[in-house]
Amino acid sequence: MVGHVNEADLEWDELETGATRFRRKRLGGAADAEQLGASLYELPAGARSWPFHYHTANEEAIYVLAGTGTLRTADGGQALERGDFVALPTGEEGGHRVVNTGEEPLRYLCVSTMQEPDVTVYPDSGKLGIFAGAPPGGDSAARTVDGYYPRDAAVDYWDGEER
């Protein structure tokens, strides 16, 4: 069956913590997409999206619908404006964070593959996000493993095991 949804029929999810502030509508999940994620984002002037990160399993893309901003990448930053499409590969080179540097709301569509397991890496804070059972942006109730951990919290394979 073909999934279909109109964004006007969906409520906004809102997140505000520090400089991170946005509204989001999860279009992919609402249309019952299984291997493709899609979310409509709206950032008010001066706001930022998710902290700078990259995925090890999921490619993402951003299409700017309205407004202006900056996309922080592993290579620095680049201006964003209406009509821009940016492909974000897996791995360090796909690191990103969207910042609204304009006066008006920045509205964009973010599309991603929905592979799991996935590890998200947050270079600024030195942490990892681990997701299995459902990828980031997916159904959190379906996850069998998820959490955020210090990147340098490695332990020996045999620690805590009976030898």
Rank of each mutant, 00 (worst) to 15 (best):
M1Q: 11
N6Y: 09
E7H: 08
D9T: 05
E11Q: 12
G18S: 08
T20L: 10
T20M: 13
R23V: 01
R23Y: 04
K25Y: 00
E34I: 06
E34Y: 08
P44F: 02
A45F: 15
P51C: 02
P51I: 04
P51H: 03
H53V: 01
Y54D: 12
Y54S: 08
T56V: 05
G67D: 10
R72S: 11
A74G: 05
D75K: 15
G77T: 14
V86T: 08
P89T: 00
G91Q: 09
G95F: 02
H96V: 01
R97P: 07
R97L: 09
E104G: 06
P105A: 01
P105K: 03
L106C: 10
L109S: 00
T113R: 00
E116P: 02
V119M: 15
T120R: 13
V121A: 15
Y122N: 14
G129I: 04
G129Q: 06
G129S: 04
I130E: 02
F131C: 14
F131M: 12
G133S: 02
P135Y: 09
G137Q: 07
G138L: 12
A141K: 10
A142M: 06
R143P: 01
R143G: 01
T144P: 03
D146W: 15
R151H: 08
D152E: 11
Y157I: 06
Y157L: 14
G160M: 02
G160P: 00
